[in-house]
């Protein structure tokens, strides 16, 4: 059973009067608890693909099921609800809310999106901050943290709502090598700890080597670029064992 299943997924943008195919008939599947990544050069369609999976955009054609939901059919409101309940996001620029402390940033989705009771909320925030090693920094504001610490907080914020899937768009792009490795290790550890699927995009070879499942994209299509091993199943193509 796949957590994400895409079939002939197409996304076309209109640039002025000219249509641009960002994705052209992409098909893939990712099982639960995967640690998967999409690789490829700029413009290959990685971010577009993550946006579709994250319900931030809608496919032009094809079908896309995430956690048994046809996300292409969700309207604006339903997509927001789905994102809030099922998905977690980690952004390249961390995107923490600067006026909130570390604790409050992580608490935010529970408070304003899922509306957890206060006691449960505090317990859960402490739990994930502890897991990412940031509990001792809980009172700090984002501008008092290093890049690696910010990304740890971002991972905690993504995980706090107990999502089935965390999407990370170039999570290590703004980090040095050592920190990038630590963040990837953390994400993997979190996958093991919280049984959450992680899907991320990158063009950083150090990160790709850590992924258990790699999809190489070029010109809006999944290609066999020689970096993926034989598929584990017929459906789950491009899987590194």
């Amino acid at each position: 059973m796949s957590l994400i299943r895409a079939t002939d997924l197409t996304k076309t943008y209109a640039n002025g009067g000219t249509p641009i195919d960002a994705l052209r008939g992409v098909s893939f599947a990712i099982p639960p608890r995967a640690f998967a990544c999409f690789v490829g050069p700029s413009g290959s369609g990685k971010s577009t693909l993550l946006n579709l999976v994250g319900c931030l955009d809608r496919p032009s054609a094809g079908s896309l099921h995430v956690a048994d939901t046809d996300v292409g059919a969700l309207d604006r409101h339903a997509a927001a609800v789905f994102r809030g309940r099922t998905l977690g996001f980690v952004f390249q620029d961390f995107n923490l809310i600067p006026v909130l402390t570390v604790f409050e940033n992580v608490e935010y989705p529970l408070l304003l999106v899922q509306r957890w009771p206060a006691a449960e909320r505090r317990k859960r925030v402490a739990e994930v901050l502890e897991a990412v090693g940031m509990l001792d920094q809980a009172g700090k504001r984002p501008d008092q943290l290093s890049g690696g610490q910010k990304q740890r907080v971002a991972v905690a914020r993504a995980l706090v709502v107990k999502p089935r899937l965390v999407l990370a768009d170039e999570p290590t792009a703004n980090l040095d090598t050592a920190t990038a490795t630590l963040v990837i290790d953390l994400m993997k550890h979190m996958r093991d700890t919280f049984d959450t699927t992680f899907v991320f995009s990158t063009h950083d070879p150090r990160v790709v080597s850590e992924a258990e499942q790699v999809f190489a994209l070029r010109d809006g299509q999944i290609v066999d670029d020689g970096r993926s091993n034989a598929p584990a199943t017929k459906e789950d193509s491009h899987v590194r064992s």
């Binding site: 994250g54 931030l56 409101h77 927001a80 994102r83 809030g84 996001f89 989705p109 999106v113």
Partner: peptide, 10 residues
Amino acid sequence: GTIAAIGTQP
């Protein structure tokens, strides 16, 4: 965009 992405209702 960030708070909308993580599911904050309009």
